[in-house]
Simulated assay, not measured.
Amino acid sequence: MRTQHQRARRTRRMIALPVAAAVMAGGLPARAAERTVELTSRGGYQSHRLPDGATDVELIQQTAGGCRFGRTWGFDLTNKELWVDGGCGGRFKITYAATGSGDSGSENASNSDSSSNVGAAVAAAAVIAGIALIASHKDKDKDRDDGWQDNDGGWQGRQIRGKGGLCMDIEGSVRQGRPLIVYGCNSGANQRFEWTRRGELRVGGMCLDVANGNPQDGARVIAYPCNGGANQRWRAWGGEIRSQDSGKCLDIENGRARPGTAVIMYRCNGGENQRWSW
């Protein structure tokens, strides 16, 4: 009997093939390629630059530490970066769109004598990548081992605890513009977060958002409709949660672990009020 994962992979192939065929019919030399890299954090943050046209990264073998997506390893397709932290080490399969001739182990796509052909190939590769990512999102997330799990097409989040055992909480209820605070843990919907493969922290169908993209210390964090902005992308760095936009940390304002205290952005300092667990 074919497993659900096998069926999902077959579905992705069926979706991608018509687009690939259309590209080939148009004479564009785009193709999918894979390469494998090994990366180990050695207790600290390490990164590897992804090749041009990268569309996905998969951990295929753990070689050190406890590797959990979004916590001790992850990737950012926009910034072309694969990263590990907290002792995680492993072999990673990188899928990317190559152009022209050349082996699949090459870091960069082959050069072309015609700049227009290269531009067209990259555009076509982006179309294929987008469709493949949409088709694979649901089953990819179910395969993760980090505890942030999708459930029947929706998602099931978890609490994020900070100093004093208080939980991150969208004040009152999840509505646009409501601030992020800490509050007594109560399993409410406004305290259950999903960390997506895009680096978003979702709660109640909205995203944690650094208000107005403010890069300054003290910037407010609010619930806001997800829009893919850099101020809605986050990275776990040990027990810290850092903005991919400013590099600053989620911090309990003034270090006061009391119900109702705002969670703000502040330069990372390793303080207890910037340490989170989930």
Rank of each mutant, 00 (worst) to 15 (best):
H48M: 10
H48A: 13
P51L: 04
P51A: 12
P51D: 00
G53C: 13
G53Y: 06
T55C: 14
V57Q: 04
V57Y: 00
V57P: 04
E58T: 13
E58Q: 09
E58V: 08
L59S: 10
Q61C: 01
T63I: 06
G66P: 02
R68F: 14
G70N: 12
G70T: 00
R71D: 11
T72E: 08
T72C: 05
T72V: 04
W73T: 06
W73M: 11
W73F: 08
G74E: 04
F75G: 07
L77D: 08
T78L: 14
N79C: 09
K80R: 15
E81P: 05
E81Q: 05
V84E: 13
V84Q: 01
V84D: 07
D85F: 15
G86Y: 05
G87E: 13
G89E: 06
G90E: 01
F92E: 02
K93R: 15
T95A: 05
T95V: 07
T95R: 03
A97P: 03
A98I: 06
T99W: 02
T99P: 04
T99C: 14
G100W: 06
S101K: 02
G105Q: 01
G105H: 07
S106C: 03
E107I: 04
N108F: 02
S110W: 07
S110F: 07
S110Q: 08
N111K: 03
N111F: 10
N111M: 06
S112V: 09
S112T: 09
D113W: 04
S114H: 11
S116H: 05
V118L: 15
G119N: 13
G119R: 13
A120W: 07
V122D: 07
V122C: 08
A123S: 15
A123F: 13
A125F: 13
A125K: 03
V127T: 15
A129Y: 02
A129M: 06
I131S: 11
A135V: 08
H137R: 07
H137T: 12
K138L: 10
K138D: 15
K138C: 07
D139N: 05
K140V: 02
D141R: 07
D143C: 12
R144N: 15
R144D: 12
D146L: 00
